[in-house]
Design a binder for these strands. Structure first.
Length: 465
RNA sequence: GGCGGAGUAGCCAAGUGGUAAGGCAAUGGUUUGCAAAACCGUCAUUCGAGGGUUCGAUUCCCUCCUCCGCCUCCA
């Protein structure tokens, strides 16, 4: 498949460096609170990338970390009166539960930052030894940006107005930073009183790792010096990923990620999502409003990953209708196929264009459009062609990670006796052509949450949503 | 100020140097006692504005307008 690469700014083919397995790393969540749908846009798109590669026959190795030591986890664990470990474990568990609901494939490896402190210290030591990092009087260690000429390539920093080691005398003007240059970033933070018991011994004294370094160390541990793809939200391009490149290429000597995949931020009601505006939604918030995780997933893949996606409650309603239409059509297609038919086709049939869209820079909205178009074609097919079409549909749905809602099976719905009695009364009134009575009873049923639909020979009851 | 992205029907949203996918909503029809559901059909001479290049531009170039994101630890 082809995918846009942030570093080269071109679309490139994705194929494993080692010829067998596509190895990629995604910056995972900082576990200090519930993940919101903005976070999940990124994780869902990464999931679709993986599924698309796998559907195309490429084996993957997916690593996504848990950031469980940083300013926020430490701060919030303390105000919660919990140990850092207990605090982050709780949020990690919630994150996993949400991921499962959204149909995200679990990463093959999910390293946590606190469990890799030795690897991080080792990498810092290497950087210090090579002259790319220096320690300050207080026991912190900083990366020396001027020692890495390529700094800024990912985010086009060289064209920006940041000082790249040009303000060597800035030290005196900044009380907060014991840095040579304002733009040097921290690799190891010396212990501060507000860190409480959250510190680790190091050659530079007690302290804790800097955020940027955590990812670099875990990547080296599980993917080595060079790997296929690195991914995250756009906000991570600078400084996080820029810093990772600097650290890792200096420490490891090689080329870091071969490809950079960044997902654009989600907007809510046309603006930035934030707690203060009250438009920061979690899966739980949306569940309370009656929306399913799959409906959320549908909305999240409803726009191209490099374009802003405007999330609204209306879009969730639209997603619900679209999913239910998909389910009906898929059901009709399946009904045309003889039971027991084994679906083994390797092609996509009428869903070929949908697959092409997905393979072309992960065009998920294009693929969704292709599915509906393909479905219209598929309904005209019969026999083996219909079976092949169904197999193709299942493949493309699996690549998108969509699970279709069940077609309501009216036979399995449990109807309370009181409702049943009302329905019988209405049916009798209707047969007697007593329309007034019939309509009154139907309204009464609706009031109690039941929808009565008249058929030729009988009626159907279903819960009204 | 710097860097980057976006403006396509009521809403969401693809796409292409050759005349605009798809979904939601709306609307007409079939069906129904009336509904609901379902099914069939309709729904952008036009792609923020103005220039330019071209046989031809929504797609390339220029200018302008509007919106959004990032600019040191937010996916």
């Amino acid at each position: 498949m082809r995918l846009f690469d942030t570093l080269s700014r071109t679309e490139r083919n994705l194929s494993p460096i080692d010829g067998t397995t596509f190895r990629f790393y995604c910056c995972g969540p900082t576990v200090y609170g519930p993940a919101h749908i903005g976070n999940f846009r990124t994780f869902v798109l990464q999931d679709v990338l993986r599924r698309t590669l796998e559907t195309g026959g490429t084996r993957t190795l997916h690593v996504r970390n848990i950031t469980d030591v940083d300013d926020k986890t430490i701060r919030d664990s303390q105000s919660a009166g919990q140990s850092l470990t207990a605090f982050t474990a709780g949020w990690t568990e919630k994150f996993h539960a949400d991921c499962e609901k959204l149909g995200l494939l679990p990463p093959h490896i999910e390293p946590s930052a606190v469990e890799h402190i030795p690897q991080q210290i080792a990498m810092i030591q290497t950087l210090v030894n090579k002259g790319n990092a220096y320690s300050s009087d207080d026991g912190s260690v900083y990366f020396k940006i001027s020692s890495f000429p390529n700094y800024g390539r990912l985010s086009h920093l060289d064209e920006r107005e940041l000082d790249l080691g040009k303000t060597q005398n800035a030290r005196s003007s900044s009380d907060d930073y014991e840095k040579d240059s304002l733009s040097d970033f921290v690799l190891w933070k010396a212990r501060r009183p507000e860190d409480g018991e959250n510190f680790w011994p190091s050659p530079w004294g007690n302290g804790r790792p800097g955020w940027h370094l955590e990812c670099s160390a875990m990547i080296k541990e599980y993917l080595g010096d060079s790997f296929d793809l690195h991914s995250g939200g756009v906000d991570l391009v600078f400084p996080h990923h820029e810093n990772e490149i600097a650290q890792s290429e200096c420490a490891c000597g090689g080329r870091f990620a071969a490809h950079w995949f960044h997902i654009t931020h989600l907007l809510v009601d046309g603006g930035k999502m934030s707690k203060s505006v009250g438009n920061l939604y979690t899966l739980a918030d949306l569940a309370e409003k009656g929306f399913s995780p799959m409906e959320v997933r549908y909305v999240l893949i409803g726009a191209h990953y490099r374009k802003p996606l405007n999330f609204t409650l209306d879009s969730l309603t639209a997603a619900r209708e679209a999913l239910s239409k998909l389910a009906r059509n898929a059901h009709q297609l399946a009904a045309k196929i003889e039971p027991g038919t084994v679906l083994t086709t390797a092609d996509f049939g009428p869903f070929r264009p949908a697959w092409e869209s997905l393979s072309q820079d992960l065009n998920t909205p294009g693929a969704l459009g292709g599915i509906f178009t393909g479905l219209r074609e598929a309904t005209r097919l019969t026999g083996g062609e219909a079976a092949a079409a169904l197999a193709g549909l299942n493949r493309i749905l699996r690549a998108l990670g969509l699970t279709l809602p069940e077609i309501p099976n009216t036979a399995s719905i449990i109807i309370p006796d009181s409702i049943k009695a009302l329905a019988e009364a209405r049916w009798a009134a209707r047969l007697a052509k007593n329309w007034a009575e019939s309509d009154t009873l139907r309204a009464k049923l609706l009031e109690q949450g039941w929808l009565m639909k008249d058929g030729k020979e009988d009626y159907k009851l279903s819960p009204a949503l």
